[in-house]
Amino acid sequence: MDDFIPVSTPVFEGRERELLAQCIETGWISSEGPFVEALERGMAKRTGRAHGVAMSSGSCALQAAVGALNLHPGDEVIIPSFTIISCAAAVIRSGATPVAVDCDPRTWCMDVDLVRQAVTPRTRAVMPVHIYGLTVDMTRLDVLTAEYGLAMVEDAAEAHGQQCDSHPCGGFGTMSVFSFYPNKLITTGEGGMVLTDDEALAMRLRSMRNLCFEPQRRFVHDELGWNWRMSNVQAAIGVAQLDLLDTFVERKRTMGRRYDALLADIPGLERPLPSTPFADNAYWVYGVVLADEVPLDAVQAMRRLAERGIGTRPFFWPMHEQPVFRRMGLFADTHCPVSERIARRGFYIPSGLGLTEEQQERVAAALREVLVHA
């Protein structure tokens, strides 16, 4: 379908071609090139961090961050149930146990009150995840983790340029993690980064991403690492994208406000909050949840939108309902009714940086037609 509107397409409006040409002209295409360090410095400065460590993906960055905590069997890490599987997988692969809590019904982010209820003597860390454009209440979570002496790994994969209580996302906790997947505000194609203020952690993360080569004896290894390096080619794109981050954030917010106006009078449609007491919505994606009285679920609504040339993406499926984890015996007694409901009744509509006003109008009209004839 020639006029199909995809959920997201990346936008390259800055120095991407220029910096990529430099990679080719100089021959620096591997992880040894200068743009990797430039991107690390730029992201660290942007988030108020001391150190950035680029990785080959956001999932690898999460795995490295959790792995650097040196967790042991029996240790617990509290995560939101409503998130991507990478969060739980990182905890499990570290040898620890993920403990899932439900999300707030309006922000879709981890409920800090439920985090407090989930803390046990075995809890070692908390992993807040900012969801779809709004943030976890990080100030309250900071207080909680300090009270119990817990580490915090902030998943800011969807929160480039976002702030919570006027503090940049990616700047909270022991470590924070970004993804640079193509649908993110900064993309390197594939890629991610861990940020921290702890120099020893940064050194360990650099070693882990580089097969744990010994500094003096390169091919002698005291422990096993991974090849999670980001290439200079990827980083060059990221450096160019970082230059435009403020522009991209404002563009997303303009799209969000426009969707708010276009969809305001559609009955049975729960739209994202424009703000909370601690954050303004950055509208990384524009998610909607069908009210209980709507006789369609998300799958049916998405199918009807696809027939009209509109791309959509389902909401995350809850961690405590993932078949792979159930087979492992995890989350057996976990119940997260909010996550369960929005997973079945929520989806997001086209909201990439390249979306035009005319396309937004088409999306809104199609969504209106689907719900009116539900």
Results as ranks from 00 to 15, higher is better:
291 A>R: 07
249 V>M: 12
233 V>C: 11
283 Y>T: 02
248 F>L: 13
214 E>W: 05
266 I>K: 02
212 C>E: 14
312 T>Q: 01
290 L>R: 09
282 A>L: 10
309 G>Y: 09
322 Q>F: 00
309 G>W: 09
209 R>N: 04
248 F>A: 15
320 H>A: 08
310 I>W: 00
296 L>W: 01
253 R>E: 09
308 R>H: 06
260 D>A: 10
217 R>S: 07
232 N>I: 04
211 L>D: 06
211 L>Q: 04
218 R>T: 14
323 P>S: 12
234 Q>H: 02
218 R>H: 12
249 V>I: 15
218 R>G: 09
308 R>P: 07
271 R>T: 03
302 M>Q: 08
311 G>T: 03
206 R>E: 15
246 D>E: 09
260 D>V: 10
247 T>W: 01
258 R>M: 00
257 R>M: 13
273 L>D: 05
300 Q>K: 10
205 L>Y: 08
256 G>M: 14
319 M>A: 15
222 D>Y: 09
275 S>A: 13
281 N>K: 08
284 W>R: 04
291 A>V: 06
221 H>G: 04
311 G>V: 01
297 D>R: 10
326 R>V: 13
212 C>G: 08
225 G>P: 15
274 P>W: 06
211 L>H: 05
242 L>T: 00
264 A>K: 04
239 V>A: 09
214 E>H: 15
245 L>A: 00
232 N>A: 03
308 R>N: 08
302 M>F: 01
250 E>G: 05
235 A>V: 05
269 L>G: 03
229 R>K: 12
302 M>S: 06
238 G>V: 05
296 L>A: 11
231 S>W: 02
266 I>E: 03
279 A>K: 07
218 R>I: 12
260 D>R: 07
292 D>S: 12
286 Y>I: 02
327 R>S: 14
287 G>R: 00
326 R>K: 13
247 T>V: 14
324 V>M: 07
228 W>A: 15
304 R>W: 02
296 L>H: 09
256 G>F: 04
283 Y>L: 06
249 V>S: 10
299 V>F: 05
296 L>M: 12
314 P>R: 11
239 V>H: 01
238 G>K: 02
243 D>F: 05
278 F>S: 00
223 E>H: 13
313 R>C: 14
227 N>V: 11
258 R>N: 00
249 V>K: 09
313 R>F: 12
234 Q>K: 02
257 R>W: 05
300 Q>A: 14
236 A>C: 11
252 K>G: 10
268 G>Y: 03
220 V>H: 10
234 Q>A: 13
287 G>Q: 00
318 P>C: 13
237 I>R: 06
326 R>L: 15
237 I>G: 09
279 A>H: 04
269 L>W: 03
209 R>M: 08
299 V>N: 01
272 P>C: 02
310 I>G: 11
323 P>H: 10
294 V>M: 01
259 Y>L: 10
227 N>Y: 11
214 E>C: 13
205 L>E: 11
237 I>E: 10
289 V>Q: 02
264 A>R: 04
222 D>Q: 13
273 L>A: 12
224 L>D: 09
237 I>K: 06
278 F>A: 01
236 A>Q: 07
228 W>T: 07
229 R>M: 14
306 A>H: 10
255 M>N: 09
262 L>W: 00
317 W>E: 13
220 V>L: 13
234 Q>T: 08
230 M>A: 14
243 D>I: 11
233 V>M: 14
